[in-house]
Amino acid sequence: VDPHLCNNAGLASRLEVWEATWEVGSRYLQRVPLLDGLCDVVDGLRAAIAVAPSLGGMFEDMDVDLFWTLPRLVMLLFAAAPGAARAELVRHVLPHRFAARQAEHARADGGATAGQELESLAAQCSAAFAALQLVHGVGEGAAWELLVRRAVRGATELGPAQGSAQVVEDLMRDVERWSLELQRHCPQDWNECSAVLVQCVTGRSGQRPGGANAHFRV
């Protein structure tokens, strides 16, 4: 290495990449709630790949459809469990959609508190779960798989005559609206977030430590 740094071809660009990577790492790895949210979403995405293998192909090929499907799945994951760690990842990108954090109103678990419109989306998701279970006589797991496949494929497996079809389509319409807001509110934040998610999903190989049911950790 030439002691005159300007004489080292490519060094400046490598340092710029290192600095940018360090900044991303400081945001996603040093903030524990956000790290937990990231890991929770990655777990959900990996489970979705098992349900809809075509999603795995999108990740591997970096298919353009992935960048429509990914925000849709993030919002569906949130709607299914708004009290889970994943809410912090959504709050990171859509902070204005969450209640302001005040000490006297802070949640005991330190989690993000969704605003009224996001709570409405979560209630809509619960209604879709209930309709699928009631009409089709399936458990919660099977109902979730139907929703995941709908989000990935963009088409329902339910016939129009089936009572749950309209409830599912209403949910997916609103999930799509939220997915667009996720991308457009602050494109830089979402682009960074989606890049981290893609790297986490595609950058691991082999079995998770602790077996198939172990939670993903960065």
Results as ranks from 00 to 15, higher is better:
210 G>A: 09
156 T>P: 01
39 C>L: 09
132 L>S: 06
112 A>R: 03
201 V>A: 03
17 V>K: 11
70 L>I: 01
32 V>N: 10
109 D>H: 05
80 A>F: 03
84 A>L: 05
187 P>H: 00
126 S>W: 01
198 V>K: 05
158 L>Y: 02
109 D>N: 08
126 S>E: 14
193 C>M: 00
217 R>Q: 14
42 V>E: 13
209 P>I: 05
75 M>C: 07
107 R>N: 09
75 M>Y: 03
178 W>D: 07
217 R>D: 08
170 D>R: 09
173 R>P: 02
147 L>M: 15
85 A>F: 06
202 T>W: 04
40 D>A: 14
216 F>A: 07
96 H>K: 05
46 R>W: 07
31 R>G: 09
163 G>W: 01
172 M>D: 07
57 G>W: 13
61 D>T: 11
136 H>D: 11
209 P>S: 08
166 Q>A: 15
61 D>I: 07
166 Q>I: 11
173 R>W: 05
75 M>V: 03
22 W>L: 15
33 P>R: 10
60 E>H: 12
168 V>G: 03
170 D>C: 13
1 V>K: 07
73 L>R: 02
174 D>C: 09
204 R>C: 06
40 D>H: 14
127 A>K: 09
183 Q>N: 00
112 A>I: 05
139 G>I: 01
118 L>W: 10
139 G>R: 04
106 A>W: 02
31 R>W: 15
35 L>T: 13
120 S>T: 13
57 G>A: 09
28 Y>R: 02
134 L>T: 13
184 R>V: 02
164 S>H: 06
